[in-house]
Simulated scan of single mutants.
Amino acid sequence: MSNNAINPFQDFLSTAEPSASTAAKLRMLLPIIENRLLAGATYAAVVTDLNSAGLEISIGVFRSTLSRIRIKNGARHQTAAPAPASTNSTQAASHRQPAALPPPKRIETPADLRQLRDEEIDLDALRQQRRESQRSQRK
């Protein structure tokens, strides 16, 4: 990775309190880290860059700390979806979405988990959706 990509980590780390915990430093760097991950960087690449910038951290500690920060922020594995470029792309995206299936639910309580276990899955509808998706990809 070039020095330009490491500089944002170095800039933020230079302003951090020297006695701050690793988790506090990662919270401060979270926007940069999330942008790198959304751009396709691996955890190992981010950890390598953090180590080069002066924050010594292992990939295991990085993964668990990042997971805890995301959970605490209520943003666990959220990704920013780009805005559709045209109406055609919106129609194509809605064509792939089945009208019968509701959006995925977040499991927050044991009752949510029990409800999810009790739901019936229509395998025929899923097969049909997959076939339609494959047909639209071929065109």
Rank of each mutant, 00 (worst) to 15 (best):
P110N: 07
A111G: 14
A125L: 09
I32V: 14
Q10W: 01
P98T: 03
S2I: 09
S136V: 04
R127D: 13
I71T: 14
P102R: 13
S67N: 03
G40C: 02
R138Y: 03
Q97V: 08
T15K: 15
A23T: 15
P110G: 02
I32P: 06
P104M: 06
I32K: 10
S89V: 13
D122L: 12
R138L: 14
S89Y: 00
K72I: 01
I121D: 05
A83N: 03
N73F: 02
Q91C: 06
G54K: 14
V46M: 03
L126Q: 11
E17F: 05
I57Y: 01
P110I: 05
P82R: 09
A83Q: 11
A80E: 13
Y43V: 02
Q128G: 00
L50D: 00
A24F: 00
A75N: 10
N35V: 01
P110V: 10
L29N: 00
S2E: 10
L30A: 11
D49P: 00
E108Q: 12
T90Q: 06
I59L: 08
E132F: 04
P82T: 12
L101Q: 11
I107V: 09
Q78A: 05
I6F: 01
L29G: 00
L37R: 05
L50N: 00
K105D: 07
S19G: 10
R96M: 04
S94V: 11
R135P: 01
V61Y: 11
